[in-house]
Amino acid sequence: MLSVPHPSARLVPVACALSAVLALAPCALASPTAANTTISADAQTTADVSWDERGRLVLGAADALAALETLPEDSPAAVSWGEGGSRTGWFGQAWMDVDGDGCDTRNEILARDLSDVDFSREDGTQGLDAGRGQGAAVCPDATVWSGTLHDPYTGATIAFQRGQDTSDAVQIDHVVPLNYLYAHGAWAWDERQRLLVANDPLNLLAVDGAANQDKSNCGPATCPAGSTETGTWTAATGPGWWPDDVGYRCEYARRFVSVAAAYNLGLPDADADALRTALTDCAAGGNGAVSVPERVRRVGARVGRTVLSNRVYTLVCAAGALLIGLGLLARGRAALRAAGGKRPPRPRPSHRGR
């Protein structure tokens, strides 16, 4: 996921007033099965499917729970990823054609996740064959010009239309965000492994653009925040993020752990605990959803984190608080003037009992 300002910033005015096997991934060793089939990584390893089919290598709830317990300890980055060039510096340009098939990752994920896909500039919905040679330079034979997304994060149905002003309605999310990956171990990986995880179909989903912005760089319970330059860097601070669509919570938790396991990524304790709680509920037949009070707490913490991690917002809020204080003081003085500036008389002491 691209690094963008956290959408909680939109709430600030209100708040102020108030793994090694992946090096072989591009090799296709087996014919794909149905696209909507989920494969247990225990039953079929990454070496058994092509790169484009890796999106189906999602662990079941019980297997994800077991994999969670085998992850290494968290290895937090000492400095923020801006020190090494942020997204491009650490993970390469978006979106690379890592498997060398002539099509960039973004178009491949759109083609996988959208329905009613149109591959041609011609009127009407045209299939892949009709679109060959009509695409953009990044994917001349399979550019996705339009389609329909049934968003996994919100449950909404979104019409996608390729274009400068319309493409952002559907974005490609890194389930385990790139900044999060960097913050918890990818800072020590080699360039090839970082490039792979940034383009791995297992770690990518086409989602509602606004939901993607809201998620930002967060895991289930923590987010990397701040920067070394401003002295605000922390690899893990609350409250984290979960999809709004309760029906997708289990799939999200399973996919998050599947990516972490595939790349041997350590997780902060808070994220591991949140995933463990959700997956335990999922394995028992539940939906893995957090409670409403917990969701409210997370939203409040997210706004607070946005304010504190940005000097401008902090100054704006401080100025707002000062103005509110001065306003209250002025009102108090005005009330005193309206009352003639006199204090109410003190009650005389009682002489009873003398």
Rank of each mutant, 00 (worst) to 15 (best):
G100D: 11
V49P: 09
D113A: 12
A61D: 03
G82S: 13
A61C: 00
G133K: 04
A64D: 03
G82N: 12
S50W: 07
D63L: 01
T38K: 11
I109N: 05
L22M: 13
G102Q: 00
G131H: 07
A77N: 01
T46L: 07
T45I: 11
L68M: 05
V98I: 15
R56P: 00
S50P: 06
D123I: 12
G124N: 01
S75Q: 15
G131A: 03
A28T: 09
G100M: 10
P26E: 14
D99E: 07
E108K: 14
A61R: 03
R132H: 11
R87Q: 02
D118G: 08
G102S: 00
P76L: 08
P32L: 12
S120D: 12
E83K: 06
V21S: 10
T37D: 09
G85R: 11
E122C: 13
G92Y: 12
L24K: 04
E83Y: 08
G60L: 01
A23N: 09
G60Q: 00
D52N: 07
F119S: 00
R54T: 13
E53I: 03
R112N: 06
G127D: 12
A78W: 07
L68G: 08
L57E: 03
E53Q: 11
S50C: 07
R112W: 08
G55R: 00
D123F: 08
G60Y: 01
G82T: 09
